[in-house]
Each structure stands twice: as structure tokens, then as C-alpha cells.
Amino acid sequence: MSAARRAPPWRRRLLGRQNQNLWFWVFVGPFFAGLVLFIYVPIAWSAYLSFFEAYNTVSPTRMVGFANYTDMLGDPNFRSSLTTFLVFAAFIVPTTFALSLATAVLVARTRVAQAFFRSVFFLPTACSYVVAALIWKMSIFSGVRSGLANTVLGWFGAESVPWLSVTNPPWYWLVIVSARLWLQVGFYMILFLAGLQRIGPHLYEAAAIDGATGWKAFRHITFPLLRPTSTAVLLLLLINAFQAFDEFFNILSSFGTYPPYARPPLVYLYYTALGQGQDFGHGSAGAIILTAVIAVIAVAFNRLFVREAD
């Protein structure tokens, strides 16, 4: 303390009152450094690489301007991966939303063993995506008769279905979507449960007096008051859909190859930039384009759902 008093005024100003600034950096500094070193430098480096021809190197010398970007935008496979994402998001976001909301409402209503049901639905969240994907691929949806799904079909005398090997009908979507729903619904259910608990019981009581129960109460009280939670859940779901990698990769890839269908952007970029390809220029350009797309969607989402609420 005395040291601070004796110090020149510029230094006192730098350290702040009671060395506040110093302590701020002592506590925040390591995390900030980590953030800069492991997040922001790589992002900047990636942006830098996207303007170069960078095969097998991260310190490229040949600048190619926007060529990597035009290549990626002209690449039918990259465009189809973006379409895959859009179709996937258009399906998985509302489905997960509806299912987790429904489970949350049901669990909140339950008078018996509520804690038990809450835990049971939440438990899959603790499961690794990779492990779940392998279980889905190898034991539930394996193509032979011993697989769980085919055993069930066998009870009804149906033929075995090679779920992941055929594309017509595209059964692989059933496998991917069911795995993702199993893994995610519990987590969003907890978010909705938290939102539900914030709605005061007196509102329902008042509504009941006016004759609004059941569906009417849900439609006019629960759903509108859940709006903040719903908005957050929607955005999280959308971003999660964009990040789709684990279950796709582990369910559909085999020996360093990935089929051209159901190939989301991250999987495609993984094969472009990592793997044996090591084409960091195109990979980085793809990552930047993808980030831009997410940014646009998130801003549009913000305008649409948040501004409207103001």
C-alpha cells in the first residue's frame, strides 16, 4: 500500500485504486492470454492462410488473392454441403425444440418421481457423441439380423434393412437424427424446465378462474412467457446444427472416405484441410465463408426474434 502511495502518479493510475487494475490482470490475464493464443490467433491465421496457396504448409509464400474463395464457392461439393446443413437444420431445429419443450412440460406436470424423470431424460447429455454414434452404428442400426432395429423388424416378419448402406430410401438420416435427438433433447429440456419454473403459479390460477386450462393455458400463458428461453434455445440449436460433425463423421465415414451425401460443411472442410489433403488455403477459405454464413443467420435471427420483442 505504501508502495503505491510513493509511486509516481502515472504508475498509480496504471495500477488503479487499491491496485484494482493489477489484480484484474492477474486474474483475467492467463485466461485472456489463452483466448488470444488458442482462439484469436488461429482465427486470424486462418484468415491469412485463406489468401494463399498452402498445400502441406502453414507458412505459405504464394498469394492467390480471392482464388481460394471463388474455388470454394464454385465447388459443387461445398455448396451441396451447405444445402445439406440447411436441410438438416430446417428439420432438426424445430424437431428438437418441440420434443424438448414437450418433455419439459410433461416432466414439470408430473407429481410422481419428478426428479427421477428429470435425471433420466438428462442423462444422455453426459454421453459422448462418439460413443453414442458407434452404438447407433454398430448395435442398434447394424445391417444384419442381430442388430436391434432389425431384430424388431424380424418380429413382424420384415426383411433386414441395411440402414447405413442404402441411399434410397435415405435411412441414414433416421440413424443420425435419432442419435442427435437422444443426445440433445435432455439438455434443452432442462433449459425449458428452468424457464417453466419462473412462471408464477398465480398466473395459472387466475387463468383457471377465467376458464383457461390445458391447451389454452399452454397456448396463452406458458408459451408466451417461455419466449426468452425459447429464443435462446433456438439460437443454440441452430449453432449446434452448424457444428454438426461428431455423429455424422462417426456414423458415416469409413477408412478415410466419406460418402457425398449427408456431408455437412465441417465434415467436408475436415477432408479438405486436414486428413491427407492438407490444403489449408481452401480449407481456411471454406471456414471463413462458413463463419460468415453463421454470422448472417445469427444477425437475421436476432432481428427477427429479439427486435420484435422490444
Binding site: 488461429p42 492462410l49 484441410a273 471463413i288 445469427a298
Partner: peptide, 20 residues
């Protein structure tokens, strides 16, 4: 939204970072 956006962007960066 901004925070989440940052998270998403970081994920992209992380992808590139694996190599870089």
C-alpha cells in the same frame, strides 16, 4: 447472440487451428 456467435466463430477457428 453475439457471444454465441463468437463461440461459433471460435469453433471454425479451432478447426483451422488443428492444422495451423
Amino acid at each position: 447472440s453475439l457471444l454465441s456467435l463468437g463461440v461459433a466463430a471460435s469453433a471454425m477457428g479451432a478447426l483451422a487451428a488443428c492444422g495451423s
